[in-house]
């Protein structure tokens, strides 16, 4: 196991203005993650865990504090740099898979590669390989509406993985799935983590969080436990 620091957050604050009043969503977050870690962020709704995920996923920048990912200062990046970083380093898995219903499973998986400037033939090859990997070889030309919830989530995982990102970031990945399908997805996550990929999972479900090797709890915008760079 490598022990390099993957990212480090120090003194992160995030404020939103709501109805003219500033709301402190995240307060003094310090979080350090090493490469190849399997982490879950556990917290009730409204705890600020989604905001934390947006910050980790470089979808947003903090109001104050420092965020260094792979040695690069994310908090100082502009929108275009953030987009490039997301494209290369981060694979997103959303709660309700967020597939484009007009595109086939394969085309959905190809999407991140389009923005990476990969040529069509190579895109197709990589997307097919990744769909095969998640066990959807015979469903590649189906539209999302023709797939079950579990299959849709697998397509979403294939899409997250196709660009070979170093971080897999999942927001309630099993939220819309039944227990059995959820367990299958968790198994897939474990497998991906064993390939030395960093996996971060946001959830409110303690059982799901337990799949991770390290769990941090977040309540009212503050990390209660597990924030330090302790041994996993």
């Amino acid at each position: 196991m490598q022990t390099n620091t993957f990212f480090e957050m120090t003194g992160i604050h995030k404020d939103y203005i709501m109805g003219g009043e500033p709301v402190h969503v995240l307060k003094n977050i310090c979080l350090s993650i090493r490469e190849g870690e399997y982490l879950s962020v556990l917290g009730p709704s409204g705890s600020g865990k989604s905001t934390l995920m947006n910050l980790i996923g470089c979808l947003d920048t903090p109001t104050a504090g420092e965020y260094i990912l792979h040695g690069r200062k994310v908090d100082e990046m502009d929108e275009t740099e953030l987009a490039r970083l997301r494209n290369r380093e981060i694979g997103f898995i959303f709660q309700n898979s967020q597939l484009l219903n007009r595109l086939t499973a394969r085309k959905n998986v190809e999407l991140p590669l389009i923005y990476a400037g990969i040529l069509p033939k190579e895109r197709r090859r990589r997307a097919e390989a990744m769909l095969e990997r998640v066990g959807l070889k015979d469903r590649m030309d189906h539209l999302p509406t023709q797939l079950s919830g579990g299959q849709q989530q697998r397509v979403a995982i294939a899409r997250a993985m196709v660009g070979n990102p170093s971080l897999l970031l999942a927001d309630e990945p099993t939220g819309a799935l039944d227990q059995k399908t959820g367990a299958q997805i968790m198994e897939l996550f474990g497998e991906l983590n064993r390939e030395n990929r960093t996996v971060i999972m946001i959830t409110h479900d303690m059982k799901i969080a337990a799949h991770a090797k390290r769990v941090i709890r977040i309540i009212d915008g503050e990390i209660l436990e597990g924030g330090g760079a302790d041994d996993a």
Partner: peptide, 16 residues
């Protein structure tokens, strides 16, 4: 809106 947000999350820059 969702499609645009998703594409941005997946790495589309504003210009694209």
């Amino acid at each position: 809106t969702v499609e645009i947000g998703l594409k941005k999350a997946l790495g589309a820059i504003p210009w694209q």
